[in-house]
Design a protein around this nucleic acid. Structure first.
Lengths: 248, 248
DNA sequence: CTGCATCGTTGATCTGCGTCAAGCCTGTAT
DNA sequence: ATACAGGCTTGACGCAGATCAACGATGCAG
């Protein structure tokens, strides 16, 4: 969206301050940094534009880089030797890539669409964290949220039916849209059915069938292959298993 | 194991230093703290002994406490309204409980066996983190590892077969035993089959059947209901899907 | 030792989702 | 426009694991 503008800014030599122009800044961990912190962060960062399908991180490679996604979308996944794939998350503008990382990447990350990211050397970033405790706190908060999301996904993958999985997925996207200031009614699906399937532990066929069922029931309406409207949010939430939350 | 000793130490008024006697210390985040840090930590902590089945945390309650497990075992789980349960993790001595927490607990935690924990007020702990950046770094590292483990579990729940799930589970327990200094051959299972099932996204019957199959194949040998010996570690690892790791 | 409750195992049957297969839709290149 | 490729949908069928059911093991209370 604002990718070209950023690229131009970064290409200029007398850049005023890339971070202050960054559209993702208020969504990202960087927003806890003051003027000098941003300058310092900027000095250790690289701007990277990527095209659809481009690989940012490959499972098993030495974990040298960390990323802050500034635009576009990314899929993060793990593979079994025979090719079975589990997508562990989709990242969007403002998301941090590289939290769950030891010496080597335990996941791969590929661009879903064109986009851009700030890239850091892990070493420099760690040094930065020592100097900027606020940033470390912000990262810890992120990690907590991601861990919570991972737990929810474990519940989904371990115990929910196909309908519940898709409903949960759509409800999550709606919630994300609301957090970004939208109404949570029109949902964009920048990923393919195969990717949704690999995220939900299903097959493309099942995702397709369940989508049709929700459509027939009038819960959703397809606007195009990659966007839909939620017609009955309450029913969707119920299907997702969000009514009571806990039996208590 | 050392529960009674600790209880006696904590009951004494002129305690020399509970932390320095804590058997879980070298396994826990506290090990990054110096003398004064430990004293400070101790001053904001409560010791809590618990019996089997005791509830430490209930999903949906205000998240006021954080815990450091010092002995025993704990199951952490989430429920669907109709009672379906997903265990998101088992915690043992040295593990931290409460990382993935917002204002309210998003999970429940119950003692699997008798044991003990250091309990902190979340508020005091957060203050402590500001004063002790090393502790915050250690927590961030923990969170990273947990997130990685969660991703592995997502792969397991979303894409592995029943045999692969159980094999992965046993291989994980073996790895944990090795990390704790054991040989990784004799595995303790302090949980029931139902709990293993709810952790692996299966039913008790399937866990039982698959266990039998592994036994018949000679991969494992049951020593009792709650302990077994790994007879063919290599075969177990292969069944778990750990041979190649990534298809690259 | 006896009784009882809980947990675990094994078998028979069922079913939700995967697999296989065919056809359709969408976008892009010529 | 036309053709092609990749993605999506729908149908028929099969199977891994769930469900239902019965029985055996374990451990605790009296």
């Amino acid at each position: 969206m604002s990718g070209t503008t950023e690229a131009i800014v970064c290409a200029r030599d007398s850049r005023p301050d890339p971070c202050s122009l960054c559209a993702a800044r208020h969504l990202s961990v960087c927003n806890v940094l003051a003027e000098d912190g941003l300058r310092r962060l900027n000095s250790i960062s690289d701007h990277q534009d990527f095209g659809a399908g481009e690989i940012l991180v490959r499972e098993g490679d030495p974990a040298t880089n960390l990323f802050n996604i500034t635009s576009g979308a990314v899929r993060v996944y793990k593979l079994l030797p025979d090719g079975r794939r589990q997508i562990v998350g989709f990242l969007f503008s403002g998301d941090f890539l590289g939290l769950a990382t030891g010496d080597r990447y335990a996941f791969s990350a590929e661009a879903l669409s064109t986009g851009s990211a700030c890239r850091f050397q892990k070493k420099s970033y760690r040094k930065m964290l020592v100097e900027q405790p606020d940033l470390e706190t912000a990262l810890l908060d992120r990690a907590s949220h991601e861990l919570q999301a991972a737990h929810n996904q474990m519940l989904l993958l371990g115990r929910k039916t196909a309908v519940e999985r898709l409903a949960s997925f759509l409800a999550d996207l709606a919630a994300r849209d609301r957090r970004a200031g939208g109404a949570g009614r029109i949902i964009q699906l920048p990923m393919t059915r195969a990717e949704i399937a690999d995220y939900l532990g299903l097959t493309t066929e099942t995702v397709s069938r369940v989508t049709s069922r929700l459509k027939t029931r009038g819960v959703i309406r397809l606007l195009s292959l990659h966007s839909l409207s939620i017609e009955k949010p309450a029913e969707l939430a119920e299907l997702a298993g969000l009514d009571a939350g806990d039996g208590a």
